[in-house]
Design a protein around this nucleic acid. Structure first.
Lengths: 229, 229
DNA sequence: CGTACTGTTGAGTACTGTCAACCGACGTGG
DNA sequence: CCACGTCGGTTGACAGTACTCAACAGTACG
């Protein structure tokens, strides 16, 4: 879900800047914190004190509306940086919640800001992360508007499998409702879409939370009913 | 659509940083360019050479998918900065198109980068813009998932009227299809939603492109059919 | 073994997309 | 000056998707 097909700069150059930036999350500037599954790491509205990087486990970024609706903006696994887009804001616009039990490295906001001032590579690394955030949300937006439920789920699973990097069986850490809130679908529709993908043999499943993508199929996307031309 | 309810820092402090950043768009670093209505200012895939600021008129940011669908990510009126989120990318991930005839100030990417390196206020101003981009897309995402067509349109009109700052009659520069591609709705549904808002007296219209919000109504949003709790 | 929770499936409904017809404004050309 | 074509917007009819409500299955846990 992160860093999907970002920068096409020479990867090693980008990586060096990123590394410098990411090193801030290690000691001595960073501190590892552990959170149990389903706990709230930071709540929407809290003052922004730290930026995080996921070490292990999965977190979700949620937005709660006044009416009580929950929208999941993104999921983040090991390696993802969370909170950079909150830097110029006094308080969190999103909640960060632990999907599974997880460990995060936390760095004080002030440290990030200071290093961005003094180190060029940190600055560029941070910009790349921010840029990635914008792009991720744009891709999400496009998907939400254009793809029907089953294709949305398929895109999500593809994306998640890619992020995991494993070609084999992938375990989904989040429940159907989470996926629904991420894709803008009801829990039931997500479940039905799973069944549809399984029946059309585009995925294989092993229990409710493990799946494997059946690859290589030319797969005619049924987009006939989508508007715009 | 821009800078909606961003930073809650003391406004004057924020403004000073923003001003320094925004001054880059004026001569001598910036150059004003004029574009006719419906022209493409930069096409998706072109190398990123400049960042823009709208002086007058309106532009739209579009994403075209391989299947030929068009998604509008945002509209930008006078004062908006366009392209900051493309800085760490070699080429544009979006197209920038003139909705009306318009004038933009263009600043070379390299100038922006240099000044971000050398001036703290420019850096912070740029970050605020980026942060605003992320937040805008998140708000868009939430709206798309939660609101039914009529409410989506209403939210859009509210937002647009606020951006314009005028309480009176507001003229929409973009056509129904544009609004549809922005809201993830078909042109026809947008049109029907206009009619619905007019009939329920939540807006008044004057021709197809001028409207006024009928304010003060407690307006019970019909969100009963929305999932999640 | 009962309870609670997650996931699955069915039935019915509501919303929105598609297709199509129509209207009015505008500009062109006879 | 008027006929005509084009374009954007509106509206209707119909179909298809996805949501709601509801029942049920499987699993974990006490």
């Amino acid at each position: 879900m992160q860093n999907r097909r970002l920068h096409r700069k020479p990867d090693d150059v980008v990586k060096a800047k990123q590394d410098r930036f990411l090193s801030l999350f290690a000691p001595p500037t960073g501190v590892a914190l552990k959170f149990p599954a389903a706990s709230t790491i930071v709540a929407q509205g809290e003052p922004v004190q730290s930026v995080f990087r996921v070490v292990s486990g999965y977190v979700r970024l949620c937005i709660y509306t006044e009416e009580g609706h929950r929208r999941i903006v993104s999921f983040h696994g090991a390696g993802s940086v969370v909170g950079m887009s909150q830097l110029s804001s006094p308080d969190w616009k999103v909640s960060v919640e632990a999907v599974t039990s997880c460990v995060l490295d936390a760095v004080p906001k002030s440290v990030i800001e200071d290093r961005m001032d003094s180190e060029r590579d940190v600055r560029e690394g941070a910009l790349i992360t921010l840029h990635s955030d914008v792009e991720m949300r744009e891709a999400h937006l496009v998907m939400m508007a254009i793809l029907p439920a089953t294709e949305r789920l398929h895109a999500f699973l593809e994306c998640f499998a890619k992020m995991r990097g494993s070609d084999g069986l992938v375990a989904l850490p989040m429940c159907r409702r989470d996926i629904g809130d991420y894709l803008g679908l009801s829990m039931e529709t997500v479940s039905r879409s799973f069944s549809a993908l399984r029946e059309s043999e585009r995925i294989e499943t092993c229990g409710a939370e493990k799946f494997r993508l059946t690859e290589g199929r030319p797969f005619e996307t049924n987009l006939d009913h989508c508007h715009a031309a």
